[in-house]
Design a protein around this nucleic acid. Sequence first.
DNA 1: TCACGTCAAGCAGAT
DNA 2: ATCTGCTTGACGTGA
Length: 298
Amino acid sequence: MKIGYPCINLSLDCRSSRTFRLKNYSEKRLKEIIKSNLDCLLNILKYNKENRIHFFRITSDLIPFASHSIMNFYWQKYFKSDFWQIGQFIKKNKMRITMHPGQYTVLNSINQKVYKNSLLDLAYHVEVLDLMELDSKAKIQIHVGGVYQNKQESINRFIKRYNSLDDNIKRRLIIENDEKSYNLNDCLQIHKKTEIPIVLDVYHHECFNSGESLSEAFKLFFKTWYDEDGIPIVHYSSQKVGGKKGNHANEIDLNHFEQFIKNTLDFNFDLMLEIKDKEKSVLKAMKLIKNDPRFNSD
DNA sequence: TCACGTCAAGCAGAT
DNA sequence: ATCTGCTTGACGTGA
């Protein structure tokens, strides 16, 4: 079991997600920002190594406007050695990496332009991981997408479009159950027709399910992962204290977390903490389970 | 230096 | 109709 966090490290004063306004676009600006983002990413990974954090989600903003039509700069070649160096560091330290395209990537959209842009954005995410020479255990997670007043048709459209993707995209793509449109049961239906692995978000599952208990949900989603996909991934968060349903907590609730860990003792998985204070909660969680035999066993 | 409106992009649900 | 949340505040103009 590895425990990780997404995109931003609050203990460091750099961001790997710097961007700028489209109207201020220039190649010079772009190069500077990308370089700064890549340098910061390596700094975050070094911080993670020192703190024994071996799971991390790389921000989609690493390369600003990567899948936008304005982009005519061959960043893949220009920064090839930077990507390679980061990839070597990741592999040498046995780190697990994921990425998560934004809300604008909707594979099952009924709008052709949105669909087309989604394909470009997926290709960009794949390129980042490929340039780092990471294997198929490095994953790109998306949600199923929109419902468009007809869930079954929208599921079928997802299946059809997923199956038409290139293998270099499919080998990395995984879907996550969400809290309002597509739950675990829906994802399992898609898995049957596509073999796509499912990330279980336990908080989303709590908000929206088909009656499966947590351990039932674990048994079901574990079967969707194959050897080449690596250890199954779980997302964890809890509800913000006093916040609305769906809001992510600002800091980890260690009592809730301990209960979750006790309820999942039969499973070994990598755990992404989606909590606002990022690495701070990871360090607390790691301290709590440092004697758990699953922890860093791989 | 700082406040705050805006930022490439979609969708659903709440208000 | 407008706002909020999502992976996430950062950018940058104008005072």
